[in-house]
Design a protein around this nucleic acid. Structure first.
Lengths: 209, 209
DNA sequence: TTTTAAACATACCATTCAGTCTGTTTCAGA
DNA sequence: TCTGAAACAGACTGAATGGTATGTTTAAAA
């Protein structure tokens, strides 16, 4: 990242990420990664002590990228809009744009891959997965709470359950997307969720104007 | 299933299913399955030509079980209730009971496992996954359509998008469930979805009485 | 009782895999 | 220019893995 030496490590991580998302972690051999990345075994084992170490570094690297993106998106939403509901809508729409980007269609979710092979990983790696998902939820929870506080919902809902719902919809959408070979499903789920939010909050928003 | 010889095949399939759901397909070796099932290599390769053939038979076997369960649930719902909305509620609640069964807590979803390792499987196996998910959706779609026809929803929704939503919520919930080690999440998502349905249909149900 | 095929058991084989070992190159600093 | 360490290259190894070959048991039909 900072030095030139990081280039190769990041290149290996990026290649591994692509392969692991396509074939799973156990289904991806080190040789597969070497071949796809065009690096030697010496280079690989210079940066990673073992395949388990790759798993750990890969998840931490990917998690750091994601958390940065979540926070960037949240910061942009807050810079552009004052109203928490508008911030939320912006955030959700921005994510829809990101997930259905046609140049780099989403292959799925790294956390789902790790979750479904959790037995293969060290406990601390699984903890990173859970913590990243929690961090992601937390961004939603904060925003939902602000919205709920300002616009009493038509039905009593908690910020936590709404956050859990959108995360579930996205994770589930990514699975259906892969299974059906249709890259539009997750964004559609998010749109539908926004329509649900409209039902919940539109009445009291109208009343407050 | 019918003959005694089927016992061993089914025993291998059931064992493989458990292991594959815990460790993924690539992460489960044939020897793992032999050891866990207490059968010999000869027995295994008598019933399955290769590991890929196991993958195929396992998915078809599992899919057949699931589809039978979906249809049984739907039939029971229709036997117990006349009103399509009550049938739907029964169906969803029954599934919640099944998924959060404490004696056999759900390890996740087989289709998700296969989806995230899809590169490893033959095209026809991936087709079985997609078709089973569609079959599952179709049961929801039929019921949602009946409900929509009888009770005009508060917001224009299609049966298809509602079906896609509950399937996504369940799939996503199963991931979060594994990641967090909390076996209650999927059932909670389903409950939340039922609350959403109430918002959609309760007004016109009240009007029709 | 004999025959026959399915159902199993086990030793074995070739390949792949993660990981090691022994170097060579690169390049920053003295 | 020299030194030393980081970065890399690639041949090699032992264990694991998928798969085979060959033989034995079982059980039902003839």
């Amino acid at each position: 990242m900072s030095e030139k030496g990081e280039r190769s490590r990041e290149h290996i991580l990026a290649t591994a990420k692509r392969l692991v998302m396509d074939k799973g972690f156990a289904g991806t051999s080190i040789d597969d990664i070497l071949k796809a990345a065009g690096v030697s075994k010496g280079a690989f084992f210079h940066h990673f002590r073992s395949k388990a170490d790759l798993a750990s570094q890969l998840m931490r690297w990917h998690s750091a990228q994601d958390i940065r993106m979540f926070r960037d998106l949240a910061a942009r939403a807050e810079a552009l809009h004052d109203d928490p509901y508008e911030q939320l809508q912006f955030y959700l729409k921005a994510f829809e744009g990101y997930i259905s980007n046609p140049t780099e269609p989403s292959r799925g979710c790294m956390y789902a891959v790790y979750t479904y092979e959790s037995e293969a990983f060290d406990e601390d790696v699984n903890d990173v997965v859970a913590e990243t998902l929690r961090e992601w939820s937390a961004i939603y929870i904060r925003k939902f709470q602000e919205v709920i506080d300002r616009y009493p919902p038509a039905r009593p809902v908690t910020a936590k359950e709404l956050a859990e719902m959108i995360v579930s919809l996205i994770e589930g959408g990514l699975i259906l997307q892969r299974a059906y070979g249709n890259t539009a499903i997750t964004a559609r789920q998010s749109e539908h969720f926004r329509a649900y939010l409209d039902m919940l909050f539109a009445p009291s928003m109208a009343a407050s104007n």
